[in-house]
């Protein structure tokens, strides 16, 4: 239980909210709150304005599920994007990671998680029906499934593949194996087995 250092309800409320942010606990929330108070004009007010603006304006894209101020999002609207490619990802964080890499020029589809029997996440809880709808577009040639290489991620990938079978499109997945800069000695057994099984001519 968080113990108030200040006897100040507003400050306590701020610290309690900050401590709910991923990566921050009560102690780092207190430090963040102090920093904000010390730098009211350069940090606190701009941050408050930015938060209010994002809360007001940022929404999930009705086509791909990306977060943007426009709907459809700037990626779905862009004429420079290859509309014959859709990359299926679990989360917006994955979309940002792929965009950071800058090597994918197609469109995205965020399904919003993975199937998980124990957590009660079924196909209806994910945005898979939207993907099936998009797959009927005659312009689409390939769907790249970029779910995580975990049991849940691959279960979801197989389910999506099953749903897309009816369309005449290529369904591919990301390669799994040795990461760039990875040393074999430090890799786990599963990655090594996958890398060996997916080897290709040099």
């Amino acid at each position: 239980m968080y113990k108030s250092p200040s006897n100040n309800n507003e400050l306590d409320h701020l610290i309690s909210l900050l401590s709910k942010i991923p990566g921050l606990g009560p102690r780092s929330a207190r430090r963040a709150a102090l920093q904000l108070i010390k730098k009211k004009d350069v940090l606190m007010r701009p941050l408050a304005n930015a938060l209010a603006s994002v809360a007001e304006n940022v929404h999930p894209c009705s086509i791909c599920g990306n977060l943007d101020v426009e709907n459809p999002c700037h990626i779905c609207e862009s004429s420079k994007r290859d509309r014959s490619l859709i990359c299926v990802i679990e989360d917006v964080a994955d979309l940002w990671a792929l965009e950071r890499a800058g090597s994918f020029r197609g469109l995205y589809h965020v399904i919003g998680g993975t199937l998980s029997a124990l957590d009660g996440v079924g196909p209806d809880d994910l945005n898979i029906s939207g993907l099936v709808e998009r797959a009927s577009d005659p312009e689409l040639k390939e769907v790249i499934i970029a779910t995580n290489a975990t049991v849940d991620g691959q279960t979801t990938a197989h389910y999506i593949t099953e749903q897309l079978k009816q369309f005449e499109i290529n369904i591919t997945r990301l390669a799994h194996g040795v990461p760039i800069g990875g040393e074999l000695d430090y890799l786990d057994d599963g990655t090594l087995i996958t890398a060996l099984n997916s080897r290709r001519p040099f």
Partner: peptide, 25 residues
Amino acid sequence: ELLRARSVAFLYNPAKLAALNSCCS
């Protein structure tokens, strides 16, 4: 401590992965 990474063998086969998930659940 990992003794044997058995799940990897089933990741790329939908039916076998479904069987593994079924047994575990």
